[in-house]
Design a binder for these strands. Structure first.
Length: 127
DNA sequence: GCATTGACGAAGG
DNA sequence: CCCTTCGCCAATG
């Protein structure tokens, strides 16, 4: 279970060591996404209670590039099922490759059966 | 410290 | 149906 701590480090300061934050919760949820399934930023935001701030989830994924262990951010797409963040990966093709490896059908940077394989944390994890 | 941007989303024109 | 605007919040300039 995630700790669900909404305390985001607004300190900009200098040391972001071990302070669980909005980002960590996002990572935790994303890591729980089953293989062959995908979810959207809004779904995660909704699960965290910040559905109005889906952008923050996206921003969290940005930091996820530095997160360890690696977060399967490729399973997180926008509400349209489009791989909007593919460009932020090590290589722009990494995201589709990983998704296809998971058995997800990707066409033109967009998940085809997105609605079918959609995985809602608020529902699967039990809101 | 204010202005701009951003891996989103929903609503309005 | 496509494009624009607003909201949300944090990071960066």
């Amino acid at each position: 279970m995630a700790k669900i701590k909404k305390t985001v480090s607004s300190k900009t300061s200098s040391k972001p060591p071990k302070q669980f934050s909005f980002f960590d919760d996002v990572y935790d949820v994303v890591r729980q996404i089953p293989k062959g399934r995908v979810t959207s930023y809004g779904a995660i935001a909704n699960y965290l209670g910040t559905k109005l701030s889906a952008r923050m989830v996206g921003w969290a994924m940005n930091a996820a590039s530095s997160a360890k262990p690696k977060v399967p951010a490729q399973r997180v797409v926008n509400r349209n099922g489009m791989l909007t963040g593919k460009m932020h990966f090590k290589t722009p093709t990494e995201m589709e490759t990983l998704l296809k490896k998971d058995g997800v059908t990707v066409k033109k940077d967009t998940v085809q059966n997105f609605k079918e394989i959609f995985w809602d944390p608020a529902e699967e994890l039990g809101l």
